[in-house]
């Protein structure tokens, strides 16, 4: 390296302490000498590294203060542990929301259970009896059956007025019972349905017993006889093979139970 442009000279250049003529001479020399250029660049790089070390200390300290300040600001909230704050507060918030919704739903449900009286349950669950198609293939259609199919419910009672209950078979009793229900006469319906039930008990048969259970339950509901209705609904819901097993939900069962308790 040229002696004139030694490290002292180069350092003075970088520190800005050379006078303008010295500075100009060096810059001219830098154009020509790669060795001086490289030495100067290495020196410049080293000075930057020293500055960088200063920056690093400052940044480190300022970041520490900044994060500490942020944590302290967070600690003014109700939760003392700042890191957990973001997680705990939303959880509490959502738990409260969920609890409120659960409470409102429960309240609404209980109100619904209480307001669902027998008449309401009857309307919601009554279905007209549909005569099975296959029945017509093997037996002659009776007069009562024809009238039932045509919706002539009143005429069904007119044509059977002279007969006693014992003179009807189970199917006819069922048709008369459902016709009575169609005419909003649950007491009359109960006469026929109870006859089916008692005949089955006496004869150890189950002719149209499932249908009898269902329409008796409907008749009891219509009359507000909740205890009897509940017994039948429980029976239907507990027997998976029962034709009307799925006609009452557990909420409806509870509704009947509540009406019975009132």
């Amino acid at each position: 390296m040229e002696n004139k442009y030694d490290d002292r000279f180069l350092l003075n250049y970088l520190d800005g302490t050379l006078d303008s003529s010295e500075k100009q001479l060096l810059e001219q020399e830098l154009e020509k000498s790669q060795a001086i250029r490289e030495r100067l660049e290495l020196m410049r790089f080293t000075i930057r590294a020293i500055k960088f070390k200063g920056y690093k200390s400052s940044v480190n300290e300022i970041q520490h203060d900044f994060l500490q300040h942020r944590i302290e600001n967070k600690s003014f909230t109700s939760v003392s542990t700042p890191k957990l704050e973001g997680k705990v507060r939303p959880m509490q918030f959502w738990i409260k929301i969920a609890a409120s919704l659960l409470f409102l739903c429960s309240l609404g449900y209980v109100l619904w259970l209480f307001q669902a009286d027998g008449e309401q349950l009857y309307k919601n669950n009554f279905i007209s009896y549909e005569i099975a198609l296959e029945r017509g293939a093997g037996s002659q259609e009776s007069q009562l059956e024809s009238l039932y199919i045509n919706g002539e419910f009143k005429q069904m009672f007119q044509v059977s007025a002279e007969k006693t209950l014992e003179e009807f078979d189970a199917f006819e009793l069922l048709l008369l019972a459902t016709a009575a229900l169609e005419l909003n006469d649950p007491e009359e319906a109960m006469r026929y349905l109870q006859k089916i039930d008692s005949d089955n008990t006496d004869n150890q048969t189950d002719d149209y017993q499932d249908e009898a259970d269902f329409f008796m339950a409907m008749a009891y509901l219509k009359q507000g006889a909740y205890e009897q209705a509940l017994r039948l609904v429980q029976k239907m819901r507990s027997e998976e093979q029962h034709k009307y097993h799925s006609n009452f939900s557990w909420t409806e069962e509870w509704s009947i139970r509540l009406q019975h308790m009132l």
Partner: peptide
């Protein structure tokens, strides 16, 4: 910056 880090270790 990588170079600075190494110089800092010498510093």
């Amino acid at each position: 910056v990588e170079g600075y880090q190494l110089i800092m270790s010498l510093f």
